[in-house]
Amino acid sequence: MKVKSIFLSLAFLLTSSAALHAQNVADLVISEVLAEPDSTCIVDDFGKRTGWIEILNTSQGIVNMGGCYLTDDKNDLKKSLIPKTDNRVQIGPRQVALFFATGNGNQGAFYSSFKIRRGSTIYLVSNDGRTIVDSIVVPENLPVGMSVSKLAEDNKQMEFVTVPEPMTPSPRVLNGNQNVESNAQRMARQDPHGWILSATSVAVVFIALAILWFLFWLLFERVANAKAKKEKAMKEAAQQPVAAATSPADAETAAAIALALDMDQSGDTYAAIALGLHLYFSESAHDLESNVLTLKPMDHHEWSSKSSVLTQSPR
């Protein structure tokens, strides 16, 4: 019962952690922030130009931002709630969402209840209200009409760093060059004849299966071989003539057999001796007593087993 409850608790913990991970809020990044717009910047749904915060879903799955928070105050992480009720807060893979920092969060799901100030830090907070998912510092000297952005610095576009120079705003558009070279294109460039890929792949297939071989040799075949050798040795020992026995135990066994044969030559005697010898040589169950071969009584065997003797009650 105790074991069962431990298993259940573990399963619950695992599934709950999986649920947390499945939400993938950790895959969100504040990709761009505009503090002060100029006349060329986009307008919000009310026709006004304000600062904005762009959030990017870096994962390959849909992420629901509902319940997360935006803030510019580390001491008030729940400053501006992203509502759960609006389906649009679910961002598709490698997509961005834009939040206008008008200072009035009641204007809609994509409006924050604070304005962006230069020199402040913008935080994206997880739906637990405590965990900071990502942050970006808005430089003091950020020019009007320019934004601070993050760009991916790796081929897989997974690791983002803040670009030191102010950039021309690109709201609702992925930052940087999105024409990322695919793996196939890279292989075509780096390995046009395919030798590197082939050699590597063959090596990996061999390594994978060789590890399996080694593990099974180690775990099973070696043990089985040792067991087989032992059994073979015992079998050979059992096949040696009784007269040639040299050890005291063997001599005693031979004497016991000779005695039994002299006294009684019925089939039952032979069967009992054969069984006794079998158990003796296979070290299964015996005790040692001069000139006598005995079988140890077993605590439990099928003859006395209730499950074997009793018939099933009729249904």
Binding site: V205, F206, A210, L212, W213, E221
Partner: peptide, 9 residues
């Protein structure tokens, strides 16, 4: 016969 794995590889 784990050694036969290598033939599969």
């Amino acid at each position: 016969q784990p050694r036969l794995i290598l033939i599969g590889a």
